[in-house]
Design a protein around this nucleic acid. Sequence first.
DNA 1: CAGGTTGTTTTCCATAGCGGAAACTATCGC
DNA 2: GCGATAGTTTCCGCTATGGAAAACAACCTG
Lengths: 100, 100
Amino acid sequence: MTADLDPIIHPTHRLRICAMLVAGGTLELSVVKEHLDLSPSALSKQVAALVDAGYVKQERLGSDTRRVWLSMTRQGRKAYQGHVAALREIVNATTVPAPD
Amino acid sequence: MTADLDPIIHPTHRLRICAMLVAGGTLELSVVKEHLDLSPSALSKQVAALVDAGYVKQERLGSDTRRVWLSMTRQGRKAYQGHVAALREIVNATTVPAPD
DNA sequence: CAGGTTGTTTTCCATAGCGGAAACTATCGC
DNA sequence: GCGATAGTTTCCGCTATGGAAAACAACCTG
């Protein structure tokens, strides 16, 4: 009943990264970097955290294999959905502990 | 157009505290503590951060002045609304940077 | 294929945030 | 006044974060 916020996803940069990937499918790392205006190292680390958690897949695709592409894994999509559900639950809460 | 996430509000405990107060009006600190299952010191610190930001008002009301009551300030409510708007914007984003 | 360039990751470092435990302050009820 | 109750602060260790620069990888050109 009480969905939990996912601490891997919640921090602002990672939440944004996931949102982009969920909406956009497979995106180039550099596109995400520009869109979120993150430094290379900051982005790389946040993405690494998502990859470590099994939420995001990284691959070098296309003709120029220097470029990295990102996409959500099935597990990541599920975790993201759960996280968003938890956010909605919190934000939409109308019920509040009854006063004494 | 791009609303920003508020770093004061975003962290999970503070988000929950704000959500409770926005929904519940004036609540006793201990009620919040029980509801969120936080240790005394953890709660005290998170609330202090919200108070420092001017988002939450703390007062000792009623006969037992040991008990602290919490409520959102006007500024806090506004910040919370903005934060939630930003969350919605991120989560509902359908538009994504166009591919090459 | 050497050398330069571009894209990404890693290392190093300094700083901020967080939470538990325990000491402390203030108040209450008897 | 005393023990119990509510909350805050201090102290401490741990994790997270981010910038800068070094390192690494892949590409491109001559």
